[in-house]
Design a protein around this nucleic acid. Structure first.
Length: 280
DNA sequence: GCCCTAACCTGATTGC
DNA sequence: TGCAATCAGGTTAGGG
């Protein structure tokens, strides 16, 4: 499931492959992938070239030469690939951008959750309101400790749910939420506003470090994630909490437990991830 | 405004 | 073996 490191990996791959690519035809086997008017989408991208690939949170921003931006969210299993133009679409290919150099950009999505929408470059936050609400990127420059102290004090939600809220911090998903909470020795059901500044400082550093490490390893492949070159990520080999239910905690040896927090499967160590009021 | 839940969707897994 | 139920999860809409 693409979280920020996986989306960043896709962005870097697309940047290498499709910048300068000129769209001469669009095929839309699954129109629902487009939010809004699919005919207007096709008209809006035709005869334009890809000029840049940006990212905000888990959103990809595919910049076009005609002043438009394709805002693309991969959700659970969305994937891009670049194929020969005559390649046969896959069972789950939802949109194909045919390029003038006899290649084609395929967007495939097994679970059909991903969506894309056409925005006016520079007005993305107006055209796609969810972009405007996104919290800071999980980097040292954007995610300050002061911001975290202020934001976390406003919510009583379980901290796991809070971390998954893209309006608070952009880019964290289920895998990395479990990882950073384990690293920070915080129980996932701890009320967000009960975390001290000291604990938040540890959590902040773990979030920043974990995201950077995952990007370096080209993301995590748990189900089907691969980059535009068809290569899987490597970070699943580095995971310390997610997916380790029933196995011994790598820190204390206690059997890892699994619970539901806000509808999300959550793996944690019941011994070293203490409930509220924990002190590090 | 905050929080929780259902819905979206399909492949893999589990249970009978 | 085969079918049905359950699970996985990011985001949004709707209800309390």
């Amino acid at each position: 499931m693409p979280e920020l490191p996986e989306v960043e990996t896709v962005r870097r791959g697309l940047k290498k492959l499709i910048i300068g690519g000129h769209i001469v035809q669009v095929k839309l086997p699954y129109p629902k992938v487009i939010s809004g008017d699919s005919n207007a989408f096709i008209t809006g991208v035709m005869n334009a070239s890809f000029t840049a690939i940006d990212r905000r949170g888990k959103y990809l921003l595919l910049r076009l030469s005609n002043g438009h931006t394709i805002v693309s969210h991969l959700r659970m299993e969305g994937q891009y690939s670049v194929e020969p133009r005559e390649a046969t679409p896959h069972k789950h290919t939802e949109i194909i951008f045919e390029l003038s150099d006899n290649r084609a950009v395929f967007y495939n999505d097994t679970r059909r959750f991903g969506r894309m929408v056409l925005a006016t470059t520079g007005h993305e936050k107006i055209d796609v309101p969810s972009l405007a609400k996104l919290g800071p990127e999980p980097t040292a420059d954007d995610l300050s400790l002061d911001y975290m102290v202020t934001a976390f004090a406003k919510s009583k939600k379980p901290v796991k749910s809070f971390l998954l809220d893209q309006n608070q911090i952009a880019g964290i998903g289920n895998i990395y939420a479990d990882e950073v909470l384990w690293q920070s020795k915080i129980h996932p059901e701890t009320p967000t506003n009960s975390l001290s500044r000291t604990v938040l400082a540890v959590l902040r550093q773990n979030i920043i470090d974990e995201m950077a490490r995952a990007i370096k390893h080209h993301g995590t492949t748990v189900h089907s994630f691969s980059n535009v070159f068809g290569e899987v990520g490597q970070f699943q080999n580095e995971l310390q909490a997610y997916g380790r239910v029933g196995q011994p905690c790598l820190r204390c040896g206690t059997t890892m437990s699994k619970i539901k927090v806000g509808q999300r499967g959550t793996t944690f160590c019941p011994f070293c991830q203490l409930k509220p009021n924990s002190v590090i």
